[in-house]
Every structure is written in C-alpha cells, then in structure tokens.
Amino acid sequence: MAYERSDSPGADGGDALALKILVAGGFGVGKTTLVGAVSEIRPLRTEERLSRAGELVDDTGGVDRKTTTTVAMDFGRITIRAGLSLYLFGTPGQDRFWFLWDELSQGALGAVVLADTRRLEDCFPAVDYFEHRKIPFVVAVNCFEGARSYGARDVSRALDLDRGTPVVLCDARDRDSGKEVLIRVVEHAGRMHTARLLDTVG
C-alpha cells in the first residue's frame, strides 16, 4: 500500500486523530455562520505568494518577487474526545483562490456545500469540484427568510446531483441544525467509503 499509518503505537502524534470537513459554497451563503454555529471559530491566515496566485489571473512575466497576498479562511475545531478532533475549514469564496482548495481537500473526510435557493448556481463550482475528486459531500440548503422554500428533491434535481448525494435543509445560524449537517457528512462519508471497499474487494 502506498500510505503509511500515522496512528500506529509510538508513531509521531501518538494515537491522536484529526479529521477534516470542508465548508464550501458561494459568496455570502453562510459558510462563516455555519462554522461559527458549531465550533469556536477562528480566522486563519495563509500567505500565498502573489506570483503563484497571480499566475491564474495575470501573467507578470515570471518576475519572482517576494510579494505575498493574504487569504483568510474560517477555521473551527470540535473536540470529540481527547485525541479525536474534527476540524472545519470554510473555503475562501473567490475563484482566484481555487488552488487553496486542492490543499484543503487533501485528506478531507468530506465536505458541506452550502446553497441558497435564490442563487443556486453559485454552488455549481463547489459541487463540480467535489464530484470530480470523489470527495463525499452533502448539499446543505441554507434557508434564508424570504427565499421560496424548495424541497430537497427539487434542489437535488436542479443541481443534477448523483443519486445518493444527500441534500439537507438547514439554518446555518442554528447549532443543532449545523450539527445535523455535519452528522450527515460523516454518515455519507462512511457509506461512500464502505462502497469503495466493497468495490476493491469485488
């Protein structure tokens, strides 16, 4: 196998286990609100070399300068028990920071794609991203007041989701609602993992 166990006795980090769930979605859809509702949220700064990020938007002719740009993301931790924590990362909304997603999604247990039915198309890129990388995700429809309410099935159809990708209605401000969303992610990740194991065996 190509991977190493990191939780074998005596190995670095002892038995501590860290799991990662991403929270993605369009601009202003409630990512920060959701992470804050279920965990103690903290801003996390990453400094990215402008040349690297800038390559995507503007070719500066390969001038290697030391300028960096700050990308902020939401970050929260939920301690399940000593040695088992769940880490939440709210992905930056702007398209030019897609390259950060690659790093964030590596080793992720799963993801939440937050959607607002008034502008459903805003979550298309996130849905595509996780589908292509086979990262288990659920779509959580953040029910803003004033938005017409749609059923989970309508949303699933509108997004052309694979069967089996859960759609949940939620209120990102509500802790219990947020917890339910995360539980659905973990359950879904478990199911996908089992299915893959069966695939390799069969």
Binding site: Y3, D7, A18, G190
Partner: peptide, 18 residues
C-alpha cells in the same frame, strides 16, 4: 504527525464515535 490518509480513514467505529 502525518494525517491519516482518507483511503484508510473512516474506520466505522471512529465515525460512530464522531
């Protein structure tokens, strides 16, 4: 520590615990 790769991750017992 290296984080546990997702391929071996969701040990059912752990997920239940989460």
């Amino acid at each position: 520590s290296r984080p546990v790769p997702p391929a071996q991750l969701p040990d059912e017992r752990i997920l239940r615990e989460v």
